[in-house]
Amino acid sequence: MSVVGVLVRREMSLAWARGGGALLAVGFFAAATVMLPLALGPAPARLAAVSGGVTWVVLALASLLSLDRMFERDFDDGALDLLALGPLPLEVVATIKCLAQWTVSGAPLALAAPIVAVALGAKPAAAPMIFVAAGLGGLAFAFLGGTGAALALASRRGGVLIAVVVLPLLTPPVIFGGVAIENYTSGLPWLTPLCLLAGYALGAVALTPFAMAGACRNAQS
């Protein structure tokens, strides 16, 4: 097993253990969407109209809330120093951390998203598109959220600060994913928004590790 494999194994096990891993994110996601019919009333037509959008926004929140400890634990217990002196640059370490986060919480959320949306009244035919969009969007959320988590390291405030810092940056993926789901449901062209979402997610994967590594070094110094 290479040194990358060693790190991947550690990060996966940490991501899984972090606050109950998938359970916490999916639990928040489900609980928050249950609130919706309770607040809006059970009228199926009204719920169906907002099902896709609500699922999408709560998904973004759920992916952000579960990653506030992504760098903070390693920072607090000194492991970030160890990681900084390892054979891989911090940029790669940050990428692996985000991918582990996505595997452990983004993928289960993507699986839960169609179920939740359909339960709210979305057409079952939209389920595959919701799954794909949630998976791609989750990638963008994880990497931008990771950037927020790394930036918040020096502040010791975590969760809410990450959301305040990162949510405005999430405008593009929220729009692209929301439009993709909506267009797919209503029979409009959906490939363009989906490609834009994928492009944005890949751009985030390519660029944010530099910001995360810089933020980690800043917090360490």
């Binding site: 950037t147 930036l151 918040a152 390291l153 020096a154 502040s155 405030r157 600060l161 305040v164 810092v165 990162v166 949510l167 405005p168 940056l169 944010t208 910001a211 810089g214 933020a215 800043n218 917090a219 110094s221």
Partner: peptide, 27 residues
């Protein structure tokens, strides 16, 4: 607002400055 919140929540001035710079560039 996010920029100001990040800057305000970090006590160490040098670190706050650096983190805020990175955020401004990402933005």
């Amino acid at each position: 607002l996010g920029y100001l919140a990040l800057r305000a929540s970090i006590d160490d001035e040098a670190k706050g400055a650096r983190a805020a710079e990175i955020l401004a560039l990402v933005g």
